[in-house]
Design a protein around this nucleic acid. Structure first.
Lengths: 345, 345
DNA sequence: TTGTACGCGTTATCAC
DNA sequence: GTGATAACGCGTACAA
């Protein structure tokens, strides 16, 4: 069974004394083939264990049935889940998903995108890195007529469809929940507002405070990276500056975890003295002894919808105007132990 | 700047009134080109924003500079880190890493592998799913002369290099640590021993007990899936059967977390009454209020070494005998709060 | 040093 | 219904 050399449609055609063209037609279910020869071709193809060379097909057709997914970090549960959603939707249609991570590096992002383009990808899904400012590499994708879809983290670019969640509402709901639980001096430890998601979460936070006449307290604000260390540092700064606060709304679960750790090491009671809410619903948030309240983002659904948008674009034809679709998903608040001052939901 | 149509070496050759062959040579730094024409070609290539069509190159050369990584689950920190190690080693060499997940499904694994083969991948890294019994799809990879490398979870197959950690030693060290901390009735909640890693962890556990004359206690044993639920269930079964135990060595961190949760909900003191050790050093283990003791597997290093083995194989030439290299890494025990009965390391 | 011609495996467009 | 033939874009013997 050591079938080293790849067999082609020519091997089949020789064996059957027919032309390669006929074999190709038979394999592709063309109507212009007699049922008899088609069955014969299919049978011998199976016998010889023929495998279509998708490289040749791609070179000929221009379609590779490969799509690229570019994310900052692969090991964030959020991104892994979005990818899973894309896979679940696209693999049944014969597509392959190539995953790239940028490690939040704009240069690396540009390289990855260029490399994907070189392999004649059929489409690109991207959640941009937080250092991305220049958009040339994204425009290059559009210029090559390759469908481009932003998910979660997006940039302002014509002709690009986006799938995101309503970060404003997610933040607004989270802060409102804190207020309903009896907290009134709510600090926000946010992310880099260069990214739309962190900008929107900040705006939602501000709006919720305003809606409850709590916005004139001169509360300190933070823009930090999404990490445990940021959370530790933020809490330290709050106490160093003797700020008056009774709750922290964090732009990420990692920040929230850092806050919780530092608060606890200072002997602060959570949620009695200080309430904490995170963002993303990373799995570890529910594993903690005191599960963390957080905002869920339905990432699998996000991936599925992004994939559907891509398929629409493909079906519309390669030369049609890029359809610009903007889907916004609803976030979901998970109220767990770190924010339940009253003990009820 | 709407450069829609892809430009080829022919476009360059026409513009310069030279042959496409010369352009190709110039682009590939062939010695058989005058410096003058080479510079000219390179310059106009840049002007025209020429991008090599890697599909054509692949079809011609048989090399795609794509490698596939097949893992059970992408969102396990362990696998994500191995992938990162592979990337770090291979991307500088011009390779692309295509990631596939099998969701522990042998059929899906076979499909993924076949699909990768169809795209003329240059190599395959795989950690097999736990349901994999039939090895035909793996032999198919070998028959196609594509380098195949097992990491972590391996199968017995000739001509395949493997990179793994010493699971036996990892388990042996963990159990010995528990014994040194004063535990003597140590139960093992293991994984499916169809997988070599769980088999080895079980053997290491048994050997450590034997080495300390603790093996004749008729302790109950478990083979369960790696999940929180498994841990909950195992602890429940232990108490239901009124088993006499004072420590649990778990084959995974998720099982360990489940054990900890159930023990705590029953009011058992950890580590005073019962000690717990997990396996893998998933990040959440150090995030817990009571950080979980666990066995670390240096996954990034594992990925890097797997990549190096692959490169060796490639450099040895495609038709050379497949070199069978077996690298075994040393595990690293992280002793944290859940196993420190004496309070010291 | 450069050009010609061919092949990689497939599909599409012609004829017949 | 079937068979030549060209074409996708590139690399490379071979010839010049």
């Amino acid at each position: 069974m050591s079938q080293k050399d790849k067999i082609t449609i020519y091997d089949i055609s020789r064996k059957l004394n027919i032309s390669a063209a006929t074999v190709s037609r038979a394999l592709n279910n063309s109507a212009r083939v007699s049922a008899k020869t088609r069955d014969l071709v299919l049978k011998t193809a199976k016998e010889l264990n023929y495998q279509q060379n998708s490289l040749a097909v791609a070179l000929k057709s221009g379609r590779t049935f490969n799509v690229g997914v570019v994310v900052p970090l692969i090991n964030r549960s959020f991104f892994a889940s979005v990818i899973r959603g894309i896979e679940e939707e696209l693999e049944p249609k014969g597509y392959h998903v190539i995953i790239c991570q940028t490690h939040e590096d704009a240069d690396k992002e540009a390289q990855q995108l260029q490399a994907l383009l070189n392999t004649n990808i059929d489409g690109v899904f991207i959640s941009v890195s937080k250092t991305t400012e220049d958009l040339k590499h994204l425009e290059a994708v559009l210029n090559s007529k390759t469908p481009l879809i932003f998910f979660d983290r997006k940039k302002d670019l014509k002709g690009v469809s986006t799938v995101s969640i309503d970060d404003f509402k997610g933040a607004y709901d989270a802060v409102t929940h804190l207020i309903n639980q009896g907290y009134s001096k709510i600090v926000h430890v946010g992310g880099d507002r260069n990214l739309n998601i962190y900008e929107d979460r900040y705006s939602g936070y501000v709006a919720a405070l305003e809606a409850h006449q709590l916005s004139n307290q001169n509360l300190p604000g933070f823009q930090m990276s999404s990490s445990i260390e940021s959370g530790l540092e933020a809490v330290n700064q709050l106490y160093d500056s003797q700020a008056d606060f009774d709750a922290i709304f964090c732009a990420s679960d990692y920040i929230a975890l850092g806050c919780v750790q530092e608060l606890r090491s200072r002997g602060i009671q959570i949620p009695q003295e200080v309430g904490v809410v995170g963002f993303s619903n990373e799995p570890f948030t529910s594993h903690l002894e005191n599960p963390l309240s957080t905002v869920g983002q339905t990432p699998v659904l996000m991936g599925k919808i992004a994939a559907q948008v891509f398929l629409e674009q493909i079906n519309a034809g390669k030369d049609s105007e890029p359809l610009e679709k903007n889907v916004v998903l609803k976030p979901e608040l998970f109220t767990r132990s770190t924010s339940l001052k009253k003990g009820t939901v």
